[in-house]
Design a protein around this nucleic acid. Structure first.
Length: 548
DNA sequence: GCCGTTTTCGGCCCGACTGTTTTCAGTCG
């Protein structure tokens, strides 16, 4: 079980306890546990009781609950509360704009026990009659339930990959000599998937035997259908192959279909590598994340080589430290980036308006700058750049005065509040920030959180035109929950010559590696290295920012 | 339920915004 999933269990526990009107301070401690655990990067499974209790906010009771989750996959306290809450009410907690208090009112006082029932009442215009609810809330709920329903049966790429790798490892141990590989849309790096697809050389009998010995829930694939379920929620699709057909079947199942059909039209199925297979068709190797690009098979090796890849990346932009809401010190973050082979790191903690994230006031900024100067001597030639993730306020202004803004080496302008905007308002707000001469990058432009929050609507053509005119780069936030700007808009960036910064938005050391999710997304959008901000050296980046 | 001392128990992060109210509760980041 991943840290995020453990953290989410405490978030859910806190919310359900609130529905049942439990002690608010007990609830807060679970919320705090959620906030702390979700940011931790060391796997909680590796922690003993004592180590767990050393974490601030984690005492004996919560530590025991974590251990229970790690060992058994469940937490008795949570199960107890789930048992006395209708599943539909738990679902209602996922509706954006509804918190535990409102859900509790809807459930206890008005008898709504599922999003479906609630939607029905909204459509009959009945919600506006209830105390504390009105017309705007009603239409917001209709919209939010629509989004919730459209997310059903869909999963984030990184989460499915995490579980897929667990299965692959266990299967490898259980059936020595077998090969199991991730395939399908998951292998192509599609950000949201509906199934975990695995290609295996195990036989059906071997697979069934393996699954019977697992401690968690499985539905076995039926005879006529290779689909099963993983831990009751995730559909899993096994493709069976043999060593002889492995490469052929890998290309075939990786898809997409049109690409596979183009590549696999000969009867010969015996290849040792994908490269060999492509070569037999006089094609260069085309990696899976590129295969959704229209007519990619017509690209030459030289054209493919121009696309951004990990070797081009010189520096990490957009990281947080303990100065704001990161969990590792500035030095720890910088050292990690250095160890990973990067030349620089642009630290961008939160600006003052972000009170929830300990946004930095001038005093703290000056302390951070002093420490950066010190570390830059100590870690030379590695360099830390003085940046900020500056809130774009409601009407598009940046969150510091010009005197302070002028002292940063790089400024990311991001929206963190007032998400409820129509396209005109949101576009205007962003353009105002883009036209601010201190802005260098627009952070997570749409504000979306995949499967949990729709981004605000934007006129991308106008946004990107403004970026071009003002020499502002657009961020491809590499956090796997964001992947924002979406790959589909990168073509337009390329057309206009707008720079894209692939940024991990790391709140701990490990998340620096999230840049890899961004790279996959950027490649799916065919971003050339020449338009990627991270391929610049530190000095080039500084002069790019100064030019404004 | 956790923390930080006062080592036994009181206090627990916040600021802005929204939509509903007619002064504030709920939600969010």
């Amino acid at each position: 079980m991943s840290n995020k999933e453990i953290a989410n269990a405490f978030d859910l526990l806190a919310k359900i306890m609130e529905l049942h009107n439990e002690n608010p301070f007990k609830i807060r401690s679970y919320q705090n546990a959620y906030l702390t655990l979700r940011k931790l990067d060391t796997p909680l499974a590796d922690f003993g009781m004592e180590q767990l209790m050393e974490i601030k906010g984690i005492g004996e009771a919560i530590a025991e609950k974590i251990q229970s989750l790690v060992k058994t996959g469940s937490m008795p306290t949570l199960e107890k509360y789930l048992a006395k809450t209708p599943p539909g009410v738990v679902e209602m907690l996922k509706i954006n704009g509804l918190g535990p208090k409102k859900v509790a009112t809807l459930w206890h006082e008005h008898g709504f026990a599922s999003p479906g029932e609630l939607l029905y009442a909204c459509n009959e215009n009945r919600l506006i009659e209830l105390k504390g609810f009105g017309e705007k809330t009603q239409s917001a709920i209709i919209k939010a339930i629509g989004f919730l329903q459209s997310s059903e049966g869909k999963y984030l790429h990184h989460l499915v990959t995490y579980h897929a790798n667990e299965i692959i490892n266990m299967l490898g141990l259980a059936v020595p000599g077998s090969v199991t590989i991730l395939t399908g849309s998951l292998r192509r790096g599609v950000p949201i998937v509906e199934t975990m697809e695995l290609l295996t050389t195990c036989s059906r009998v071997q697979l069934e035997k393996f699954m019977k010995n697992q401690p968690f829930e499985w539905d076995l694939p039926s005879k006529n259908n290779d689909k099963g379920m993983w831990q009751e929620f995730l559909p899993i699709h096994f493709y069976f192959t043999t060593g002889h057909d492995l490469i052929h079947d890998l290309v075939s199942t990786t898809g997409p279909r049109s690409f596979a059909q183009h590549v696999l039209d000969s009867p010969d199925k015996s290849f040792n590598t994908e490269t060999e297979l492509f070569k037999s068709k006089h094609l260069p190797y085309i990696s899976p994340e590129l295969r959704d690009i229209q007519h990619i098979e017509k690209w030459s090796q030289k054209e493919l080589d121009l696309l951004i890849n990990h070797q081009h990346i010189k520096g990490i932009i957009h990281c947080h430290s303990t100065y704001s809401d990161g969990i590792h010190s500035l030095e720890a973050m910088a050292t990690e980036a250095q160890v990973c082979g990067y030349e620089y790191l642009v630290i961008t903690d939160h600006s003052q308006a972000a009170a929830y994230a300990n946004g930095l006031k001038l005093e703290q900024l000056e302390a951070q700058w002093l420490e950066i100067d010190y570390l830059n001597q100590k870690l030379h030639p590695f360099k830390i750049l003085k940046g900020i993730e500056c809130d774009i306020l409601a009407h598009g202004d940046l969150d510091y005065n010009e005197e302070i803004l002028s002292r940063f080496e790089l400024i990311i302008g991001s929206i963190h509040s007032v998400f409820n905007m129509d396209e005109t308002k949101a576009t205007h707000r962003l353009i105002r920030a883009i036209e601010n001469p201190f802005t260098n990058i627009i952070g997570h432009p749409s504000g979306r959180l995949l499967l949990s929050r729709e981004g605000y609507p934007l006129d991308y053509a106008r946004i990107l035109d403004a970026c071009k005119a003002n020499q502002v780069a657009i961020e491809l936030n590499a956090n796997p929950q964001r992947l924002d700007i979406d790959a589909s808009h990168i073509t337009k960036c390329v057309e206009l010559g707008v720079y894209v910064a692939i940024n991990p938005d790391a709140h701990n050391k490990t998340s620096i590696k999230d840049i890899n999710y961004g790279l996959i997304s950027a490649r799916r959008g065919a971003l050339p290295a020449s338009l990627c901000l991270n391929t610049m050296t530190a000095n080039e980046l500084i002069s790019f920012c100064k030019k404004r």
